[in-house]
């Protein structure tokens, strides 16, 4: 930090600029905003940060972050326990939830296979998924990993691991984005959309 800036401010700026999408400039702006904000607001922020780590746990069933174990997705009787949607990250759960088209349960892998980052199948919650399926009650596993090579590698590994269970295994369809022009679709996307075409 620049000379002459008091230590506490400099420390906060440094911490804030470690956050994703926040650069030193934004961090500085946030720090001075907090300095001038009502004490109550700052306390609430501090409290929210503290409770984030103390009250949030990983659900022992689906490994999503939650304020209780098991999480509310896993205990909600209104949700279909026989369908499990497998996603890479907790944020993906939110994305699928926003779609409002899914009323089953989740399984969060916490990543995808990526040798470059040193992430292999053992670093993901894949064995846990196998156990979950073996325990019974799961009729279909929907693999909703990202449409990247890493996501594909992960999906393939899941398929391999679950093969012995005979559970129904499906993948999200790939293809055109809603509102997308066929004219502008790239050839890969378009050919995937063709492969995944459906009867009316």
């Amino acid at each position: 930090m620049v000379d002459g800036v008091p230590g506490p401010i400099s420390r906060l700026v440094e911490e804030l600029s470690k956050l994703p999408t926040i650069g030193p400039k934004t961090a500085g702006r946030l720090a001075f905003f907090l300095l001038k904000a009502p004490a109550r607001q700052v306390d609430q922020l501090a409290e929210a940060l503290r409770s984030l780590r103390s009250e949030i746990v990983e659900c022992s069933v689906c490994f999503n972050f939650s304020d209780g174990d098991p999480c509310h997705f896993c205990t909600d009787p209104g949700r279909e326990g026989s369908t499990v949607c497998v996603v890479e990250d907790p944020l993906d759960v939110l994305a699928v939830e926003r779609s409002a088209g899914f009323r089953g349960r989740y399984h969060v892998l916490h990543g995808a296979i990526s040798p470059l980052e040193g992430i292999g199948p053992d670093d993901l919650k894949i064995d846990e998924l196998l156990e979950r399926v073996k325990d019974g009650g799961v009729a279909e596993v929907i693999v909703a990993t990202n449409a990247t090579f890493e996501g594909d590698a992960t999906a393939l590994e899941i398929a391999r691991v679950l093969e012995e269970t005979g559970v129904r295994l499906t993948r999200l369809a790939r293809g055109l984005a809603t509102g997308g022009d066929i004219e502008y679709a790239d050839p890969t996307t378009l050919s995937q959309a063709l492969d995944g075409r459906r009867e009316f």
């Binding site: 990526s114 040798p115 040193g118 292999g120 199948p121 090579f149 590698a153 393939l156 590994e157 391999r160």
Partner: peptide, 30 residues
């Protein structure tokens, strides 16, 4: 991108013995 990932995996197998031919299959295919 595939080559970089695959190289990382080959290096890991060489160094640690962790990961097997099976884990290479996907990257071979791609």
């Amino acid at each position: 991108h595939i080559v970089t990932q695959r190289n990382a995996l080959l290096r890991e197998i060489k160094m640690t013995g962790r990961g097997t031919s099976r884990s290479l299959e996907f990257w071979d295919m791609k």
